[in-house]
Design a protein around this nucleic acid. Structure first.
Length: 243
DNA sequence: GCGACAG
DNA sequence: ATCTTGTCGC
């Protein structure tokens, strides 16, 4: 076991949201490199029954723009859905562990998201995360990292890639176009609504680009944003409004 | 070296 | 992330 893993307690503490989130940039980068080098067993959605799909999201105080800093208050929500039914939800407040730095988002939001998801009374089978996965300098973006920390398959969903490149898909619902990083497929643009900007579905923990696109399609209702992610975002922002 | 760079 | 502004559509 590496120093980063031993210090962070990632190995041997799978599922414990208090572990696996080093708060020093060099240590996080070391852990990301180690996680990114792994090849976790691929997961696929069941074909004979509905999939329990979760989502998590955190938001920050309004009126505060920029990169933020350690200690920023935040509101975080997590939900579990099965088809159109919400089976569980969690809303809580927490604190950011660091400012936002591209490539080190896990340091800012990781512990809060992990804690919220861990409190769900009905666990999802796959979790949507507002972050990249293998599209990352060390192939271990927050969506991928969160899945490793929680021992849960994950799919990232963002407005744009971090490093990967690729053309947009056709303007038809469900259309997808692969995004690659150094020749490796790491995700795909997905058109969830005709006439709207496509989202990026990111390969995460135990998911490849094809599975990421499939989960986003399964989770999408009438809105551009997949239902569990949209609902987690709504709950987090509602909690902020009640502050 | 400099800018760009998920949220 | 959050904000502002503008535009289209229900």
């Amino acid at each position: 076991m590496s120093r980063a893993c031993r210090r962070s307690g990632l190995l041997g503490h799978v599922g414990d949201p208090e572990h696996g989130w080093p708060d020093a940039p060099a240590e996080l980068a070391e852990l990301q490199a180690e996680l990114g080098a792994r090849s976790p067993v691929p997961w696929r959605p069941p074909t004979d029954r509905p999939t329990r799909i979760g989502g998590c999201f955190c938001c920050f105080p309004r009126g505060v723009e920029g990169f933020g800093e350690r200690g920023d208050p935040l509101w975080v929500a997590a939900v579990t859905y099965e088809e159109r039914r919400r089976l569980a939800s969690v809303v809580r407040t927490d604190r950011a562990r660091a400012p936002y730095v591209a490539g080190l988002l896990a340091m800012r939001e990781g512990p809060a998201l992990a804690a919220a998801v861990a409190e769900l009374t009905v666990a999802p089978e796959v979790l949507l995360v507002n972050a990249t996965g293998r599209d990352h300098p060390r192939a271990a973006g927050l969506a991928y990292h969160l899945g490793a920390a929680l021992d849960l398959p994950t799919v990232g969903v963002t407005h744009r890639p971090l490093l990967a490149t690729g053309d947009w898909p056709a303007d038809a619902p469900g259309a997808a176009a692969t995004l690659t990083l150094s020749g490796t497929p790491v995700g795909a643009w997905v058109r969830t609504r005709a006439g709207r900007r496509p989202l990026v579905a990111h390969a995460g923990w135990r998911t490849d680009p094809g599975t990421a696109v499939e989960v986003v399609r399964l989770a999408t209702g009438t809105a551009r944003t997949p239902v569990p992610l949209r609902e987690a975002r709504r709950l987090a922002r509602r909690a902020r409004a009640l502050r």
